[in-house]
Simulated assay, not measured.
Amino acid sequence: MSDSSWMTNQPRVSPVSRRDALRYAAAATALTGLGAAAARAGAPTASAAAPTLIDFAMRQIPARDILAAGHAGVINYVSTSRPGSSMGAKPITLPYAQSLAAAGLAIVSNYQYGKPGGTAPSDFTRGYAGGVADARTAWQLHTAAGGGQSAPIFFSVDDDIDRDTWNNVALQWFRGINSVLGVQRTGIYGGIRPCQWATTDGVIGRSRSPGHVWAWQTRSWSGGQIYPAAVLYQRVVSTASNPGPVVGGLEVDVSDALAQDVGQWNLHP
């Protein structure tokens, strides 16, 4: 895969200096190298040496700061802020997406509105009809920001659920999402077990990287295990007791790319 495969297809919005252009090329090359190495090794193991994507919600982090920190892209929200909150990075906007693309950064879409104990309930509890509504919202915000027409959106199961809850609650939500987006454009964020269940039940699509599906696994609730079919592994989860690295003045979560195709917009126009 060429180096440019990790760069989004958005127009440039400002001139880029020669120094920055060299940094951008290096970031793209690093990502491509990981994909090739992972394919050769067939290894799902996350590593600090893997190209990394960050996720954050409080505000937009300038592309220059993301590059300076050595990250290759972002996983950004295609959902709005919960009642009572105002998160500047939710949802991703077209101007911000264009600035990331101009810097050669990869963009992946994620939907999360509710949260356990938050001012809105966890999205996966909203049933089939809720899945339909959430998928429509996600797709509208994704496309408004310039997201690829065949790119996946990862929907969050941000809780430690058991199999009964998956079968009787979360699975119905995903079926509703599938009815709008289709299976191939649906992904999951969650611990290792929901990622496995979503694959087994056929509600998430497949990456172009052989053996991988649209599973963005978090280390939370995963018992130190990594799902071999995942495309992303959230290795750093920023909390008050264990803050993540600071990028552009904001603490962020960090995910390792486990495949060449992690759902970045430009590979799925």
Rank of each mutant, 00 (worst) to 15 (best):
G146W: 04
A46S: 14
R136I: 02
V180R: 01
K115Y: 14
G70R: 08
A26Y: 00
A257C: 15
R19Q: 08
V252Q: 13
Q98F: 06
W173D: 04
Q264F: 11
V13I: 12
A102Q: 10
A106Y: 09
R235D: 13
N242A: 15
L34G: 05
P152T: 02
A48S: 07
P269S: 09
N9F: 09
L105A: 06
R208W: 14
C195G: 15
S179V: 02
V231N: 13
P15A: 06
D20Y: 03
F154L: 11
V213A: 10
N178V: 14
L171Y: 13
R175I: 08
S255P: 03
Y77I: 07
T29S: 03
T32G: 06
H71T: 02
T199F: 10
Q10H: 15
I188L: 07
S238K: 08
W221E: 04
Q140A: 15
T52V: 06
D123P: 09
Q60D: 13
S122M: 11
S255N: 15
V237F: 11
R12V: 13
V254L: 05
P116R: 08
G182T: 01
V203M: 04
G249L: 12
P11M: 14
A135K: 05
H212W: 09
W221K: 09
S86F: 10
T186H: 00
R126C: 13
A138C: 04
A72R: 11
V247A: 11
G33S: 01
Q196I: 09
A49S: 15
N167E: 12
N168R: 12
L31H: 01
H142T: 10
V13Y: 03
R40I: 12
G176H: 07
T239I: 13
Y233H: 11
N110Y: 13
N76L: 14
T29E: 02
N9A: 12
V231S: 15
P210N: 14
R163T: 07
Q260P: 12
T137W: 02
G33T: 02
M1P: 09
V247I: 10
W173P: 02
G33I: 01
A72I: 08
I226Y: 04
Y227D: 13
T239S: 15
W166M: 10
V252T: 08
S17K: 01
V252D: 12
L250Y: 14
V108E: 07
A144H: 09
A240V: 15
A38D: 05
L100R: 03
E251S: 15
Q184M: 01
G205F: 09
P83H: 06
R59Y: 03
D159N: 12
A48Y: 05
I54R: 06
W6H: 14
W216T: 06
A38T: 11
W197C: 10
Q10F: 13
G42T: 08
A103E: 07
Q264K: 10
A133P: 07
L34V: 00
A41Q: 09
A25S: 01
T8Y: 12
A229Y: 13
D162M: 08
L100Q: 05
D159W: 11
R23G: 00
L31W: 00
Y189C: 02
P121M: 07
L53Y: 07
R136D: 04
S79F: 10
G191I: 02
M87G: 08
V213S: 10
